[in-house]
Amino acid sequence: MTSNLLRVGILGVGRMGADHAERVATRINGARLVAVSDPATERARELAASFDGVRAVDDGLALVTDDEVEAVVVASPGFAHEEQVIACLEAGKPVLCEKPLTMDSASSLRLVEMEAKGGRPLVQVGFMRRFDPEYAELKRLLDSGSLGRTLMVHNTHRNKDTLPGFVSEMIVRDSLVHEVDVTRWLFGEEITQIHVLAPTPTSVADEGVLDPQIAILTMAGGGIATNEVFVNTGIGYEVRCEAVAEHGNATIGLGVGPLVRQVNRAGTHIPEDFRERFATAYDLEVQAWVDATRRGEVVGPTTWDGYAAAVVCTAGVESLTTGRPVTVELAPRPTFAV
């Protein structure tokens, strides 16, 4: 890096991008927010004006090639990721790309291959659950072997509501993708089959939206993961995970804060949305990205992880459409050019 502080630009200033902007500008050590960009140019200008020394750049690709920007956070909608990550790779700039890496397996594989041909890793994919303290502790517990071999994982992913236009396929590509990644990570194996089932949908969902959904994942080693995704519960943001092993089990995500028992009632706080539930995870994720980038390294989920999740989700959309299990087939994993 050319300065003591990593100069960061952010593409996309919706809920996630604005949250990252505030994070980089106020809470991340070793980094300085210098530019933001969004097709909603007025919104980008308003956000930039809320921080000292931050510019709004109307053209997102111009932000990538801007000499002041040393590294990029891609927080734009998934359909824009391929073009923007390609621009970062061509410019040789490290990038933290929010999930999904891209919207389909073919375009994700193109990024994997392009990065490998470039000779060094530059992309971290924003699967922030790997940085959440509870998930990290669960991973350490399973890897320690103290519970024996992991047999099953049960994931629950519930949102209070969704933005307009959040269709059935997006539940797979934008929501289930988190469970896909965390399941691969916890088992330490690839997924070989996915079967997505849709029970009677909630009346709260938009017309034609299949919500909730149940996805059954089969692992390369024979393990099974069940996944409930329900994005219009009207209650709050709930993410839980139970790992069942040969000699015990462990559950995380039972609540935020203490479980209070009083006057024949017990309860805990349910977060409003993902920004509250995973605030610490996002902080740790971005800090790890900044620290690694300043060292010239990449940590956390890679383009391969993003690609593998995209393949599973592409198969999941097919399963949702046909009602049948779909085999997951990954391309050979390329190695970095030397």
Rank of each mutant, 00 (worst) to 15 (best):
D273Q: 12
L61F: 10
V290A: 07
P100T: 02
A56C: 10
N264W: 10
T280F: 01
V244G: 03
A48P: 08
C88I: 12
M1K: 09
I191E: 01
R265D: 02
V95A: 08
E83Q: 14
R265Q: 12
E68A: 14
D59M: 07
T192I: 11
G188V: 03
W185T: 03
D52M: 04
E83L: 12
V312Y: 00
V34N: 04
V153R: 01
G255R: 11
G165V: 12
A310N: 14
L217S: 01
E70H: 05
D52A: 13
V172I: 15
G53F: 10
G236E: 10
K139N: 06
G165N: 12
R240L: 08
E169I: 11
H269Y: 15
R32N: 04
D67A: 15
V298G: 03
D291Y: 04
R265S: 14
T218Q: 08
G12C: 07
V328C: 06
Q84H: 14
R7A: 11
P271Q: 12
E297H: 10
Q193W: 01
P332A: 07
G300L: 09
V312G: 00
Y307I: 05
A205Q: 09
K93D: 13
F230A: 13
E22P: 00
V13F: 06
L47K: 13
D143T: 01
D174H: 15
Q287T: 02
G306C: 04
V196N: 05
E68H: 06
V312L: 00
V69T: 08
G221F: 01
Y282A: 10
N159L: 15
T218G: 04
P199V: 10
Q287Y: 04
V311Q: 04
G60I: 05
L217I: 04
Q124E: 10
L138W: 06
A250L: 06
P301W: 00
V286W: 03
V312W: 00
R184V: 06
W289H: 09
T102D: 02
S107M: 10
G126C: 08
T321Q: 12
S105G: 12
L101K: 00
G323N: 08
M16V: 14
A308W: 01
I270T: 15
D67G: 11
G165C: 11
N159Y: 15
D143K: 01
H247Q: 02
W185V: 03
V95N: 05
F274V: 15
K160G: 12
S319M: 02
R45W: 05
A18F: 04
L254C: 11
A25L: 07
R45T: 14
C313R: 01
Y237W: 13
P325H: 05
P94G: 08
N29M: 05
V328L: 06
E113N: 05
R265V: 07
F274K: 15
R294K: 12
V231T: 15
V312P: 00
V209E: 13
H20D: 09
V328K: 02
C88D: 11
R7G: 07
A18Q: 13
T65Q: 08
R265G: 10
